[in-house]
């Protein structure tokens, strides 16, 4: 019994230590973000990598989500003759929820994993240590540009993904289910509120921050060679996904009733 309690205590202390370590890393990264040098070229490069190169996969996810959403909504709403609500449901679901969450999860898999793998490889091959020896702060050079890109580029990516998703829904509604094109678009625009878009973009910025900071943290402290880099990459994706889902609920709760 005492052993079990000891085990619980040991694990709890380990968990608290890990949270503290992660929080310290996050604090260092945020404080470095506010301090020069600002490295605009690296920030732009990271933005392009995150937004532009992720657009095909995120766009594909969005368009098929929009299409499926219309079909599923139609199946349900047709049972009580509420098909006319489909445009509103689709646009609100996509902008407030599905757009940012699906994009966040896809970015965690594509960008978060890449950040963890790159920094992890740099760590195990002494490149980060070399950078420190050259009096360059690795966090400022390697983490900050990606962090800024996550916060800035992710909302832009989600905005594009929302538009693509809505257009996917429109195509299925009009060409497969026979909705009137003009009425569908009018209903979509009429019921979409500014705050729906804003709340989605706030989520996107938070998810962008989570994905980049978690990927960077896991990679930065990777160890034990190739196996360690693999572990860092996997846990970066898993932890990012979990944090995205938890923070999604918290942000939704904060914005609830608005």
């Amino acid at each position: 019994m005492l052993g079990f309690v000891g085990w619980i205590g040991h694990r709890s202390l380990g968990l608290l230590g890990a949270i503290g370590h992660f929080t310290m890393f996050m604090g260092m990264a945020i404080s470095q973000t506010l301090m020069p040098p600002y490295r605009p070229k690296r920030i732009i490069g990271a933005c392009l990598d995150l937004a532009l190169l992720s657009l095909p996969v995120v766009g594909l996810t969005a368009i098929f989500s929009g299409m499926v959403l219309v079909l599923q909504s139609y199946t349900g709403f047709a049972r009580f003759s509420a098909e006319s609500a489909i445009p509103q449901v689709v646009v609100v679901s996509l902008t407030r929820e599905l757009g940012p969450v699906l994009a966040g999860l896809m970015i965690a898999g594509r960008v978060g994993a890449a950040i963890a793998a790159e920094l992890g490889t740099m760590r195990v091959s002494d490149q980060i240590e070399a950078m420190q020896a050259m009096i360059k702060d690795p966090i400022s050079y390697l983490v900050v540009p990606r962090l800024i890109a996550g916060i800035v580029a992710m909302p832009i990516l989600v905005l594009v993904a929302d538009t693509i998703g809505v257009m996917g829904g429109y195509m299925v509604a009009v060409y497969r289910l026979g909705f009137n094109s003009a009425s569908y678009l009018a209903a979509t625009i009429e019921y979409l509120e500014f705050f729906d878009v804003v709340s989605g973009l706030v989520k996107a910025a938070v998810f962008g921050f989570i994905v980049t900071v978690v990927g960077a943290y896991k990679g930065y402290y990777a160890s034990s060679g190739a196996q360690g880099v693999g572990r860092a990459t996997t846990s970066a994706v898993v932890l990012s996904a979990i944090l995205i889902l938890i923070s999604n609920y918290l942000i939704t709760e904060a914005f609830f009733n608005r």
């Binding site: 790159e118 490889t121 740099m122 091959s125 002494d126 490149q127 240590e129 070399a130 950078m131 420190q132 020896a133 050259m134 009096i135 360059k136």
Partner: peptide, 25 residues
């Protein structure tokens, strides 16, 4: 560290940079 240069065991050159960028980093 300004007055110390380090030659690492595996070289530790930055993969993403060209040789001249590595040297003048």
């Amino acid at each position: 560290m300004e007055s110390i240069g380090v030659l690492f065991q595996q070289g530790a050159l930055f993969d993403s940079m060209k040789v001249w960028e590595n040297i003048t980093f």
